[in-house]
Computed example of a mutant assay.
Amino acid sequence: MAGQAQAAQTFRRTQALLAAQMARQILHVWRDLMDPAKVDASWPAVRAALMPIVQQARTHSAALAAAAYMDARRAAGVPDGGFDPAGPLQLAIARLESSLDVTGPVEFKKAIAAGRSPQQAMDAAAVRMVGSTQYLALEGARSVISKSVDSDDQATGWSRVTDADPCAWCAMLASRGPIYKSERTAGRDQNARFEGDGAFKYHDHCACQAWPAFTLDEPFIGIAEKLYDDWLRETRGTGGKRAVNAFRRWWEAEGRSAYATAGQSAG
């Protein structure tokens, strides 16, 4: 079990490194090719250079996830049995183009309209673009894990794996621990404590990953077990949105900094 938890953290770090490497490429293209004095004229060439970077990163992310999924399966003692991990969710060209348009020239023009200098507008757009493209790239791995768990009769569910400095939303979701596919398991009871549709959500600049589970006695991964204790303490006597808000207030006031400090000390 400890080996699986370690493998999950290694997988998350590998995906984070891939996202960071892609971000450097995105910023390089944006800063070198985009002309803030001629946004509309320069953008088509910039977008054409950005698209393959995102697509290649997404493909790499998915391939790493497929290999990691099979490694986790074997480590759990599950025979291969002819199972192949699912392919990633296909990224529609129109979706990628729209994401780049909105976080690139549209964001730049919004910043200019708000009174920012061209350099400030370039920086604001860069932040938005990195977050959006990292989301699209890491969706490769996330969709492979999710779809594989759903299609694998031997998989029982998954866990959310975070770094030591997640946002309040990600910390709350990670505190659920292992989420099981069957509604007859504790996973359903855990899910019911939280607001929102679906069991696994992401956002721009999110470092979280999912990790497959193959038993009904899976360990909490990383900081998840302590987060669960903190969730119970901070939300005692509340429920629904009040519980979510109580946890968020605590996380933003003191929880996040404590976890981040502990993570830096451990590193």
Rank of each mutant, 00 (worst) to 15 (best):
Y180G: 00
A72G: 03
G87S: 08
G263E: 00
L89A: 14
A243P: 15
Q21R: 15
G115D: 15
T185A: 15
K147I: 06
D204I: 03
L64Y: 02
V127K: 15
A68H: 04
E97H: 13
L100C: 02
D123V: 04
T14G: 10
A49F: 03
R176I: 02
Y228N: 13
A258H: 12
K201F: 08
P212L: 02
K201S: 10
P44R: 03
M51A: 14
H203G: 09
P88D: 10
V106N: 14
A72L: 00
F247S: 04
V106Y: 13
D189Y: 12
L18D: 00
A41W: 09
V130T: 09
V149I: 02
L17V: 15
D32L: 11
P79H: 06
E107I: 01
G87K: 08
R188M: 14
L96G: 05
Y135I: 07
G240I: 01
T10G: 13
A137E: 05
T185M: 14
M70R: 11
I112Q: 12
D189W: 07
E139A: 06
E139K: 05
F214N: 04
A76S: 10
A62C: 12
V144Y: 00
P85R: 05
M1D: 08
Q15C: 11
D197E: 15
S117C: 04
L91H: 00
T235V: 01
A253R: 13
T235N: 06
G240M: 06
Q56R: 11
A48E: 13
L50G: 11
I221P: 02
A5F: 00
P79C: 07
Y228A: 12
A19T: 03
S143F: 00
R193S: 09
H205K: 04
S117Y: 02
V46S: 08
G187V: 05
D204H: 04
A243V: 11
A258W: 02
W231P: 04
Q120R: 07
A168M: 09
G267S: 12
W158K: 10
A125D: 08
E234P: 06
V78H: 12
Q90S: 13
V161E: 03
G157F: 00
K110N: 09
R236V: 06
W43M: 03
W231H: 02
K110E: 08
G81Y: 01
G240E: 08
I179A: 02
I223V: 13
Q25S: 09
V161G: 05
D71Y: 05
W250C: 07
D150K: 10
W231I: 00
A243S: 15
V54N: 01
A8Q: 03
A5S: 13
V29H: 11
I26Q: 05
A207Y: 04
F194R: 07
A8P: 06
A199K: 12
G237Y: 01
A262F: 02
I179N: 04
S146F: 09
R58M: 05
V244L: 13
